[in-house]
Amino acid sequence: MANKKAFGGLKGREIMVLGIIAIMAILFSILSPTFRTYPTLVSVLDNSYYITLMALGVTFPLITGGVDLSIGTGLVSYALIGGYLIVHQNVPVAVGILACIGIGLLIGLFNGALVALMDLPPFLATLCTCMITRGLGPALCGGFGVSWPSAIAEAGAFRKIFKFTTATGTVIPVGIISMIVLVIIMSFVLDHTRVGRYTIAIGSNKEATRLAGVNIKFYHVLAYVISGFFAGLAGVAYAATYATIYPGSGAGFELDAIGGAIVGGVSATGGVGTIFGSFLGVIVICLMKVGLPFIGLQANWQQIFTGIVLIAAVLIDVVKKKE
């Protein structure tokens, strides 16, 4: 509730993004009849889980005026390590999942130490961590990819958190419920707890917050720990959807998440942003990811188009600031 709200408790920006989602959905549906089907909806959502989780987490460093570039290669490495443990070391799936999340947490802590305790610029620090995590997974797992258990396997039960297939074969994307629950929880954290409040304060005016006696080092580190934790969760989500983890991949995933957050209203300079906005922004990104191929846009044009949308989002941000 740090910023003015319009009707229904939604900020102006969020309403605008909802509008964009509606327009895009309608546009794609018109241009591609196969787009407006239930399976496509499920596909859009499916693609969104790991990106949503990344975005929920990275919103925190972004609001402090920083960034976490390590979440993309990170989530792949964490999933690689978790999968390796499951497939090659025969640990129970639950342990593999915990390992994936746990390592994400640790790397988040590492990032927090670099940025908040040692004062390194977040862009540089997390870029270095990105390079580290890119090699970390393959280094620990012998260099090859690994496939998490599939839906039919017994050990694949964890996938049901994200997708539930009924006896008749209908696919229910239950993952969206988990996402909504997480959005509600993290919104609460951002708006109504000291963790969230001080994260925004640090992004707004770090020195003033320090002078007010707040332990900014703690809360600043915490922002990155949250980001790492959600990167770990994203790794699990990715594994649940795509099964095979290819080592060394993931570079660029973070751009989807950060891009989504920015479209959703997070300011690149800090102090502004909502969880719900980031969530909506990710939906825009995923809509484009799935929709553009469907309307026949060939691969390279998809990327160009996505880039343009992101530039537009940042421009709106900059123009608003000048007012």
Binding site: M1, R197, A201, G203, A208, G271
Partner: peptide, 11 residues
């Protein structure tokens, strides 16, 4: 002024 522009007055 040492203020946090993005937060409210009370905050």
């Amino acid at each position: 002024l040492n203020m946090l522009g993005h937060l409210t007055v009370a905050q």
